[in-house]
Amino acid sequence: MTNLRITTSPDRVRALLRLLPGAIGIALVAYALLAGGYLISVVSFGLIYAIFVTGLNLFMGYTGQVSFGQNAFAAISGYASAILTATYGWEPLLATATGLAGALAVALVVGYPTLRLKGHYLAMATLAIGLIAYEVAVQWQSVTQGYMGISGVPPLGIAGFEITSERGNLLFLAAIAALGVTAAALIRHSRVGRAMAAIAGSEDAARALGIDVARYKLLAFLIAAVYAALAGSLFVHVVGFVSPEVFGLHMVNLAFTMLYVGGIGTVMGPLVGAVVIMLLPETFRAFKDYQDLAYGAALILLLIYAPRGLASLADLLRRRAGEGRRA
């Protein structure tokens, strides 16, 4: 009897640990719904970033490539959403779909030639399109209204039913983020995800096994662009406003921090990282003047004690449980 309990309980612990990040996420959304106020906005932005970073993780974590310009795809789709609805009165959903298609087309034009080359051409090209997207948003005043930005963007909705409450937005974003993370998990544990992970591990070995490396890099890049574009449009419709700064270099910095703090290459890392990085500054409000210092110190401690990200901590515990079983 005792023997049986010893052999089964670590398995249960492992299963529970796998559900842990999701459970915390649901609890957090529920808490924000109840508490209301500022926390709703903070968690909402965290969820939008979670979508953005989940896409980035597919390209950087799963496939082992680098992109500094995912903000360009958020900007393309975000501006398409804003301009088509606020200026031309389109339906928000149609505008978002158009934005996604536009971002995808640009990603194809940029990715197809550069991903065929070895080395850091893609990293440089992506950095360039990020900067170009920003400049276009600033300079093309007749359409984008420059630094002023575009306000009065309508919220998302289907057939007259619009999400107008903050709580409604939060629930909607939580559902989209959950779908986004689930899709990423399904991709990771498939033939496509294995090919991407193989490329991250060794391009030569991947090619020697018949994997078309350029093709899968491009696929990962396109998927990441769709996630980024979706996040861009969601942001614009939720906030009702867009300006060049929204999708500036700041967005890239924040996304990279979230990716590494959460755990690059893990399925749950982007969600964990996005929410934690959004909540951290709030947590340190009590430190007043030392808020930035406390935030910085917390980041450094995180990277020292969880160098592979917060999501890897759950993995570590799971592995301990697994060793317990073998012993």
Binding site: A183, L186, I187, S190, R191, V192, G193, R194, A195, A198, L209, G210, I211, L219, I223
Partner: peptide, 13 residues
């Protein structure tokens, strides 16, 4: 097994 399987993005999702 890559060469002897055919699952793409749609099959993954």
């Amino acid at each position: 097994r890559h060469l002897h399987t055919r699952g793409g993005l749609w099959a993954a999702l």
